[in-house]
Amino acid sequence: MGMGKKLSQIDRRIIFLVIGLAVALPLLFPIGLQIRVSEPAQRMYKAIDQLPPGSKVLISFDYDPTTMPELYPMNIALVRHCFAKDLKVIGMALWPTGVPLGEEAFEIAAKDYGKSYGQDYVNLGYKAGDIVLISNLGKSIPQQFPIDFRGTPLEELPIMKGVRSLKNIDLVIDLSAGFPGIVEWTMIAGGRHHVKVGGGCTAVSAPSYYPYLQSKQIVGLLGGMKGAAEYETLMNARGAAAGGMDAQSIAHLVIILFIFIGNLFMFLGNKGKA
C-alpha cells in the first residue's frame, strides 16, 4: 500500500470542501474573465434580431427552480432582447414550476423597457398535457388557454388579436430543462406546424440537441449557464450568469485536476503491480 493508494482513499469531505471553495472564492473575489460567444448562441441572437417589430414570439417556460441558475438568466436576457426589438411576447409553460419564474423575468424586463401587460406581453400560465398540449396549440391557442395566468379572458387582451394558433406565431423560444421541452416543441411545433423553434436548455441536455442544430430543426441554442452568459454578453448586460463564469472556470479546472490525479494514481499503481 503506497502513498498513491492512501491518497486515493482520502476522506470525501476534503474533496467536498475543495470544490465548495473553488466555487465560493471566485464569487467573492471575481477575476473578470472574458466571455466568448459560441455559434449556436449567435444564431439564436440573430433569429430574434431579424424579426420585424410587432412579430409574435411565444416563450415557453419549461423549467423549474432546480435549473434556475442556468435557465433563469437566459429567460431574462431573451425577454429583454424581444422587448428591445419591440416584439410581442406570449409566455406559457409546460412545467407548472416555470410560470412564476417566467412571470418574474417578464416583470424585470418589462420595467426596463417600459412594456405593459396585455399590450406587449402576456403570461398564459401552465397547462398539463405535454406533447398533446403543443399539438393542440397548433389548432387553437384560445381553446387551450381560455384565460391568461391572471384570469383575464384572451379576447380581452390586445396582444392576442389575430393570434389563433401556432400558425400566427413567428418564433417559439423554449427554455427547456428536460421533458417536455425543446425536443417536443421541435417535433410538434416545428415538425408538424412549421413554426421556427429555438431556445435554451440545461447544459446536461445541450450535447444531445446539437443534431437538431446541424439539421436546422432548431434556429439557435443556449446551453447552460455559459449559454446564458453568452447571451448576456451579446446584450451587453452582465447578469448572474456572466458573474458566475469565473467560479465555473475555477471549478472546471479543479475537476480536471482531480481526474488527472486520480488517473495518475491508477497509472502508478498499475506500474507498481507490473
Binding site: P52, P53, G54, S55, K161, G162, N168
Partner: peptide
C-alpha cells in the same frame, strides 16, 4: 378586420 401583421410579412 381580421388581423394585422407587420410589414415584410
Amino acid at each position: 378586420l381580421l388581423g394585422e401583421v407587420s410589414s415584410g410579412v
